[in-house]
Design a protein around this nucleic acid. Structure first.
Length: 195
DNA sequence: TGTGTGATAGTCT
DNA sequence: GACTATCACACAT
């Protein structure tokens, strides 16, 4: 195995802390024998009954039940009928919470991502939640996928740690829960969806 | 370089 | 029947 997946304990914490800790980590997708790798540069935290912007706010449904499952699972839903969005379940099982992966910096398999996206500009490859799932060929087949197994789709520690500043802002595309600054991104990174 | 708007379909009321 | 954790394109600047 080329990359080592983060353990379940990493995700079994307060979702806001998990979100911040995910910045700088690698999202790894094995596709047809090739590695597609991107550095996570933008995330958002969503919780449960104290967060009106969260899918979990109004209780468990057939769509959102994964948020109540074990930390480290993938929760994937369709946004606006066109874009798949990738979340990672956080906090102990039974406590609904998740972290939305909003943007990546492409590191490996860039030509495959370009083909999947059908765009030429490097900066448009993975600079948004719907864009990165398209670039990495992630859809509802991965709903409930265990990201700690280290197969096909997982999150891994980067080979070397670099220093960066974290910016906290309001979350994007929501109308409720605007008081919470639970969107985090790497300051100055070119692939953040918007500053 | 930025703002406005239509497409699109699953989900819940 | 309304709403939505988005994207891409047009158009103006």
């Amino acid at each position: 195995m080329k990359y080592t997946p983060l353990p379940r304990s990493f995700y079994e914490r307060y979702a806001v802390d998990v979100a911040k800790s995910l910045l700088g980590k690698l999202l790894v997708r094995e596709l047809e024998g090739r590695f597609l790798v991107g550095k996570i540069v933008e995330v958002e935290a969503y919780r449960g009954i104290d967060d009106p912007a969260s899918h979990a706010y109004r209780g468990k449904t057939p769509r959102n039940y994964i948020m109540w499952e074990a930390p480290g699972l993938a929760y994937i839903y369709l946004a606006y009928g066109v874009n798949w969005c990738l979340n990672i379940v956080a906090e102990p099982k039974g406590c609904p919470a998740a972290v939305l992966i909003r943007a990546l910096e492409p590191l490996e398999g860039i030509e495959v991502m370009r083909k999947n996206r059908g765009v030429a500009r490097l900066r448009d490859l993975t600079s948004g939640p719907g864009k990165l799932t398209q670039a990495m060929s992630i859809d509802s087949r991965f709903n409930g996928w265990d990201l700690t197994k280290g197969k096909l789709l997982y999150v891994a520690e980067p080979p070397s740690l670099e220093n960066f500043d974290i910016v906290a802002t309001r979350r994007i595309g929501i109308k409720r829960g605007l008081d919470k600054k639970w969107r985090f991104y790497i300051k100055g990174n070119l692939f953040v969806s918007r500053v």
